[in-house]
Amino acid sequence: MKLWIAKCFLLMAVLAGGGQAAAQANLEINTPGIAAIQGSMQKRHTELAPLYGSGAVGLTRDGNVALRDPASVPLAQRAAVNTLIAAENQDRAALYREIARANNHPEWEAEIRSTFGQRWIDRAQSGWYTQNAASTWVKK
């Protein structure tokens, strides 16, 4: 009886080890859906980059972009810039959702978003505006 229980525990320990190893693996990001969103964001970046540089648009903590300084955008272009920001945030939301779904964990979406939020900010160029922990704009 005791031997049997010991065997049972050994089996569980082996299973647990395998589970932990699986959790360390990479996230799946090579799906057609993710690639399409990525391509659309890459194309849009050529339009967004000058806006990041001028400080008109900044990177928020929650993994989005936002109009930081409306005054720095000429009135005639403001609607176009707002459309650009809305499209970018829509793509970003879809990206976070798609990554969570591609890994069979839709409930990870919020954590993926916050991970991206931190990485976009960490990797932003100097001169761009990002939000700090208190959600105030800071120039990098």
Binding site: A16, G19, Q20, A22, A23, Q24, A25, N26, L27, I29, I34, Q38, M41, Q42, H45, L95, I99, H105, W108, E111, I112, T115, F116, R119, W120, R123
Partner: peptide, 23 residues
């Protein structure tokens, strides 16, 4: 343990996508 969010893997995935989007 299996359902824990893999934070390190997510960071790596984010970096790969940011590399692509920001070239």
């Amino acid at each position: 343990i299996n359902i824990y969010f893999p934070a390190a893997a997510a960071e790596k995935a984010a970096d790969r996508i940011i590399d692509e989007v920001w070239q």
